[in-house]
């Protein structure tokens, strides 16, 4: 459980790599499936905040998945979704595209994996749990990867926020609370002209 376990995991492990779903036959199937899925947002409720990256549809998927996976009250969803939206907005395009694809697959995978007529966000909470557990416990490695990605996103969206720390007994960063100095002086970076001058004078 080292920090670095999700150092990259948190933002990138499950999301950024184009290989995410390219993992054998099952991955190819998932990838193909995702590419065929609709991306429109017409049937998704407007959101009471401006989004930087996620569409209304993606926001709905990620918030529902997060509160179910982390066992949180529904009302925390918007806050988590907003945090995830801001984080994803700063990630490289490959990561963003992978995230979009993943969320689309999760939303419409109900038809493929559970033969349900309704998409994920329209299921009851109990059915959402059963559906997500299906991803977690799947014998298909690619589905377990997607679950890990969702869980990681959810963890980042919720547990990175100070409001989540008190309930779990985490006392938060020392910085700004406990004054400890450093006697080490880091070098100031220099402009290109100074580098050119040094190289010329060698």
């Amino acid at each position: 459980m080292r920090d670095r376990a999700t150092a990259l995991g948190a933002l990138q492990f499950d999301l950024t790599r184009r290989e995410m779903l390219r993992t054998g036959f099952g991955g190819v199937l998932l990838l193909s499936f995702g590419a065929l899925l609709p991306s429109g947002c017409a049937r998704y409720s407007p959101i009471g905040r401006p989004l930087k990256f996620l569409s209304r549809k993606e926001f709905a998927v990620v918030t529902r998945a997060a509160v179910r996976i982390l066992g949180l009250p529904d009302e925390r969803g918007d806050e988590i979704g907003g945090f995830i939206d801001a984080l994803l907005a700063d990630l490289p395009p490959t990561t963003q595209n992978q995230a979009r694809l993943m969320l689309r697959v999760v939303e419409h995978g109900t038809h493929l994996f559970d033969l349900k007529p309704r998409r994920f966000t329209r299921l009851s909470p109990a059915d959402q749990d059963a559906y997500l557990r299906g991803w977690m416990e799947s014998s298909l490695g690619a589905r377990r990867i997607v679950f890990r990605a969702l869980k990681t996103l959810a963890a980042l969206g919720y547990y990175a926020q100070p409001s989540a720390w008190e309930p779990i007994g985490y006392d938060g960063p020392w910085l700004g609370r406990i004054e400890i100095g450093s006697s080490f002086t880091h070098e100031e970076p220099v402009p290109l002209a100074a580098v050119r001058a040094r190289v010329r004078n060698r």
Binding site: M1, D3, L70, I168
Partner: peptide
């Protein structure tokens, strides 16, 4: 050990159990 985000990502479980 890990701080909360990493811990939550790595610790097993789903839903209420995870919380």
């Amino acid at each position: 050990f890990a701080f909360p985000v990493a811990a939550a990502s790595v610790l097993p479980g789903y839903g209420e159990q995870h919380r």
